[in-house]
Design a protein around this nucleic acid. Structure first.
Lengths: 104, 104
DNA sequence: CGTCTGTGTAAGCCATGGCTAACCGTAAGC
DNA sequence: GCTTACGGTTAGCCATGGCTTACACAGACG
């Protein structure tokens, strides 16, 4: 059920903004909070949710903590969508075949 | 910003359950509500959200309304994840390269 | 036309959860 | 050992939104 945690975590706009900050690589909390319209504790809370959802991981360097995207977490979500996508295409194709047969 | 609507719509468990019912093809509202733990109006409301998010489309047959997955909507979400995924891999590779260079 | 079937809509209740402010813990630098 | 920098945690407030019940509406059928 991990992909559901990922979707839930990414449903919040602020949390997506936090996550987007990690697109290009690891970032410390304070740096991200400085470019966001919410307080640092809020960012910290969002990072906790992202971490619990398996989308993010933490690396400590002294008193700083760098957060980065956890690729396995993102990949689970990716695979769910691919699977859904495949099923939808298959159902669509099957419906088209049925329609073709009905025309005989 | 359409993929954000898709993620927001899919963040609710019940709404995901509704959406999953459409994996294998079009379904009328009542049939879906019968296999879900919520009332029919609730399902109707969820379908409205999914429709507004571009994830679902409606086809009327007499008094019945068949809902089906709208492929364009799902594809937008798919592409966002693919793009994010590519960026993360690129950032990871770049970091590895930097690390290699620093070892000279 | 009446009625039954299938569904959307409106009002109101209540739980979830995101935000801030205040506080606590820990590593670094002197 | 103080102080400062960097962040996680808690308490409490308030908006969002999902659910049900009651109502409205359109097409099929006699």
């Amino acid at each position: 059920m991990a992909y559901t945690d990922a979707i839930t975590a990414l449903s919040d706009p602020t949390r997506r903004a936090v996550f987007e900050r990690l697109r290009a690589g690891p970032r410390p909390v304070g740096e991200m909070a400085a470019t966001l319209p919410v307080s640092r504790p809020a960012v910290s809370q969002h990072l906790k949710v992202l971490k619990d959802a398996g989308l993010v991981e933490e690396t400590r360097h002294g008193t700083k903590r760098f957060y980065s995207v956890r690729r396995d977490g993102l990949d689970e979500l990716r695979r769910w969508i691919e699977g859904f996508w495949d099923d939808v295409l298959a159902a669509y194709k099957e419906a088209a075949d049925d329609h073709d047969r009905s025309k005989d």
